[in-house]
Design a protein around this nucleic acid. Structure first.
Length: 600
RNA sequence: GGGCCGGUAGCUCAGUUAGGGAGAGCGUCUGACUCUUAAUCAGACGGUCAGGGGUUCAAAUCCCUUCCGGCCCGCCA
C-alpha cells in the first residue's frame, strides 16, 4: 500500500540544517592545492576515488537565448574534465537540457539556430502564449526548424559547445522521463514521501502534508500540474486534478481535468529532480551558478544524502558574468552568445576567459575586448616562456593546453602538418590524441604570431589582404613565420574589425572608396592637397610621402593636426585613422590622386 | 528581516589560502625620436585596498561592525 498524501503529519521545519562537511559549494575558498582552480577541483573529485568514466554534468532549461553566462555550465566543467584527463582519467561531460520544465513566461527575445536574436513579435507569439505551463518539449518550435521549442534551444546550446570544441553529451530530460530512467526513483520517492517531505521541509515552508513530490502532465491540456490527489505505486500511477499554477506574479490556469498519469507522464519538482539526475547519470561533479548555491544546492545535497541515500557530486559555485557592466538578461535581449563573440575573438581567447577564478564576478566587456585579448596574448607568451613578467606561469602551464588544444586540433594534423583550410575554429580532441597535440603545441604552434588586437583593428580599414599583410610586415609584426602562422595572425583582422564596427569605437573606420565624403576646405588647404597629389604622383616611398605631408602643411602654414584630419576626412570620413603616408603609398595611385584632387 | 558571495588606481583586474615593501595592463599627463596617427620608447601623475573599530611589533589580508552591489531564503533553472 502506498502513502496517502493526506495522511502525512510531518510539519514543515524551516530551521537551519547543518550541511554535510563535503557539501560546501564554495570549494575555491581557503587554501587550494594548485594555482589553477580547475586542478584544485579535480583533486577534490579524485579524493573520492570515483570510477572511470568520471561524469561531469551541467544543465539549464532551454528557455531562451543561451548566452555567455550560461556557458559556465559547460566551459567550467570542461577545464575540470581536462585536468582529470591530464591525470589519465576518462571523463564524460554531460549536459542536461532540462526540457520538461514548463514555459512560465514568454521571453521577449528569441534566437534562430544561427544565433540571430529576434523579437518575440517576429515569430508566432500568439501560438507561443497558448503554451504557457507546458513542457518545453511539448511546445512547437516558433522557428519551425526543430521538433519543439525545447529542442530548438537545446540545439543552440549544443552548437555553442561545438563552436568551442568542447565534447559534451547532450541529455534530454524529457527523454529520461519517457524512457523510464526516473521511474525507479519516482516510485521510491512516492513510497517514502514522509522522508521526502521531512527533508525538503527544512528548506521550503510550503511543504506540508499534502505535498506530493511529483507533478503530472495533464492529459487534457498538456500542462504541468501540481495537485496530486492520490498515489498508487503498485500500479505506477497518480491521480491528479489540473489546477492553476502560480508562475511569478501570474497564474497559469489549469483546465480542471481529473485524470491519471504514469510516472513517465510528469516530472519531479526541481529540488528532487536535480538529485535524481545525479543518481541516474552517476554525476561526480557539477558546477552551478551562485543562485543555486544558497537555494537548491543545500536542499539538493540533503535530499541526495538523506532521501535517496547517495553521495551528491563535488559542487562548485561560480559567480555570474555581467555584459558591459549589466546583468545578462535573456528575456530583454541584453545577451551575447558564443556565436557573437567568435566573430570578434579567436575561440582560444574565449576559452581563456573561462579559466579565470570562478568565485569572482566578472564583466565581459565588449567595449574593452582589446584588453581581454592583450591579456590572453600575455598568457600565451607566459606559457611559451617568452615573457618574464607578472603573468602567472604556473597557471599558464596548467591552463593554456586545454585553452588551445581544440584550436590545434582544428588547424593541424596530429603530426603537426597544418590543415590548409580549416572548416571550423575548434575541434574536440580525442583522448588518444592529447599527447600528440601537446607536442604540436610545443614544437609547432610556438611559432604562431599574434597581431596586437588594436593594430589588427587598424588593418581592418582596408579589405585588401595583400595590403593588410604588407602593412603588418612593415610595422614589424610579421617576419619569417610559416604560412599557417601568417594566415592565422591576419585572421585576427576581420575579428578586430568586427569589434570596431560593433562598438563604433575609434578604430571603426573604413575606406570611403565609392563616394567622397563632404569636407569643407579653404584655399590654402586645397592648394596643399593639390601639391601633395603632385608629389604622390611621382613618389612611392611610404616614408617620403609621410614626410611630405608635414612639409606641405608647413609650406601652406596649415596646422599639422588639421591637415591630417582633412586627409582622414577625405579617405575615411573620420578625424583619425592609420598612419597616412604608408597607407596612401599602398593604395592604388589613381584613386589616391583623384581623391586628393577632390575629383570623385 | 535572515543567509551567502563580492567591494583594491579613471577602466579591467592580480595580490587575501600561510599578516610584514600597495601592484600590472590600459587610460591620462610630460618628454624624446630633426615624421601626432594601434605609433614606439622613457618618465610622471594616480589608491585613507568601501567606512569604522579591534587583535598584533606589523592588517588589503585575521576578528567585530556599518554601508554599497549581486544572489538565495516563493516559483524556476
Amino acid at each position: 500500500m502506498s502513502d496517502d498524501a493526506t495522511e502525512s503529519s510531518e510539519e514543515a521545519d524551516s530551521t537551519a540544517r547543518e550541511m554535510h562537511a563535503e557539501d560546501d559549494p564554495y570549494v575555491l575558498q581557503g587554501p587550494q592545492p594548485h594555482p589553477f582552480w580547475a586542478e584544485s577541483v579535480a583533486e577534490k573529485i579524485l579524493d573520492r576515488d570515483p570510477d572511470d568514466p568520471i561524469v561531469i554534468k551541467g544543465g539549464i532549461s532551454p528557455s531562451g537565448v543561451p548566452h555567455l553566462g550560461n556557458m559556465n555550465e559547460i566551459v567550467r566543467g570542461y577545464f575540470v574534465a581536462e585536468a582529470l584527463r591530464d591525470r589519465g582519467r576518462e571523463v564524460r561531460q554531460v549536459f542536461t537540457a532540462d526540457d520538461r520544465d514548463p514555459l512560465r513566461k514568454l521571453p521577449r527575445k528569441l534566437a534562430d539556430l544561427d544565433g540571430n536574436v529576434v523579437d518575440l513579435g517576429d515569430v508566432n507569439a500568439g501560438a507561443l502564449g497558448r503554451n504557457l505551463g507546458k513542457p518545453y518539449t511539448a511546445i512547437p518550435d516558433p522557428f519551425e526548424c526543430c521538433d519543439s521549442y525545447g529542442e530548438h534551444f537545446s540545439n543552440l546550446i549544443e552548437r555553442s559547445a561545438e563552436l568551442l570544441g568542447i565534447p559534451v553529451e547532450m541529455v534530454s530530460n524529457t527523454e529520461l522521463y519517457e524512457s523510464g530512467e526516473f521511474e525507479e526513483l519516482t516510485e521510491y520517492l512516492l513510497d517514502n514521501q514522509q522522508k521526502a517531505r521531512e527533508v525538503l521541509g527544512h528548506y521550503q515552508d510550503k511543504v506540508d502534508e499534502d505535498y506530493v513530490p511529483f507533478n503530472p502532465i495533464c492529459e487534457e491540456c498538456g500542462k504541468i500540474t501540481e495537485t496530486v490527489t492520490s498515489v498508487d505505486t503498485e500500479a505506477g500511477t497518480v491521480e491528479y486534478v489540473c489546477t492553476d499554477m502560480e508562475a511569478g506574479d501570474k497564474t497559469i490556469e489549469g483546465c480542471g481535468h481529473e485524470g491519471t498519469a504514469t510516472f513517465r507522464e510528469g516530472k519531479l519538482p526541481w529540488r528532487f529532480e536535480w538529485p535524481a539526475q545525479w543518481e541516474v547519470l552517476g554525476v561526480d561533479h557539477e558546477p552551478f551558478g551562485k543562485d543555486h548555491a544558497e537555494g537548491s544546492w543545500p536542499s539538493g545535497s540533503d535530499v541526495a544524502r538523506n532521501v535517496f541515500e547517495i553521495e551528491p557530486p563535488v559542487p562548485m559555485a561560480y559567480e555570474w558574468f555581467t555584459l558591459d557592466g549589466e546583468p545578462f538578461s535573456s528575456s530583454s535581449g541584453h545577451v551575447i552568445m558564443v556565436q557573437d563573440t567568435l566573430e570578434m575573438l579567436e575561440p582560444e581567447v574565449l576559452r581563456y576567459f573561462f579559466t579565470k577564478d570562478p568565485s569572482k564576478a566578472r564583466d565581459f566587456s565588449v567595449e574593452h575586448l582589446d584588453q581581454l585579448v592583450d591579456e590572453f596574448d600575455a598568457f600565451e607568451r607566459a606559457y611559451f616562456g617568452e615573457e618574464s613578467g607578472e603573468t602567472d606561469e604556473e597557471i599558464a602551464a596548467a591552463a593554456y593546453p586545454p585553452v588551445v588544444r581544440p584550436t590545434i586540433a582544428a588547424r593541424f594534423e596530429t603530426d603537426g602538418t597544418p590543415i590548409a583550410d580549416p572548416e571550423t575554429g575548434s575541434v574536440p580532441v580525442a583522448d588518444a590524441d592529447r599527447e600528440t597535440y601537446d607536442e604540436v603545441i610545443d614544437e609547432t604552434f610556438h611559432s604562431r604570431v599574434r597581431l596586437p588586437y588594436t593594430f589588427a583593428a587598424v588593418l581592418g580599414m582596408t579589405d585588401d589582404p595583400d595590403l593588410r599583410e604588407a602593412i603588418a610586415r612593415r610595422e614589424g609584426h610579421l617576419a619569417e613565420e610559416p604560412e599557417w602562422a601568417v594566415e592565422m595572425a591576419l585572421s585576427r583582422v576581420e575579428r578586430a574589425r568586427e569589434w570596431a564596427r560593433r562598438t563604433g569605437n575609434e578604430f571603426d573606420y573604413e575606406l570611403k572608396r565609392t563616394e567622397m565624403p563632404y569636407v569643407d576646405l579653404d584655399a590654402d588647404t586645397e592648394a596643399a592637397l593639390d601639391e601633395l597629389a603632385d608629389f604622390v604622383e611621382n613618389h612611392d616611398d611610404p616614408d617620403e610621402i609621410q614626410g611630405e605631408i608635414y612639409e606641405t602643411a608647413k609650406r601652406h602654414d596649415i596646422d599639422i593636426g588639421e591637415f591630417f584630419s582633412v586627409g582622414y576626412r577625405l579617405f575615411f570620413d573620420d578625424d583619425q585613422g592609420p598612419k597616412l603616408g604608408p597607407f596612401l603609398a599602398k593604395l592604388d595611385k589613381q584613386f589616391v590622386l583623384a581623391r586628393l584632387r577632390r575629383e570623385e
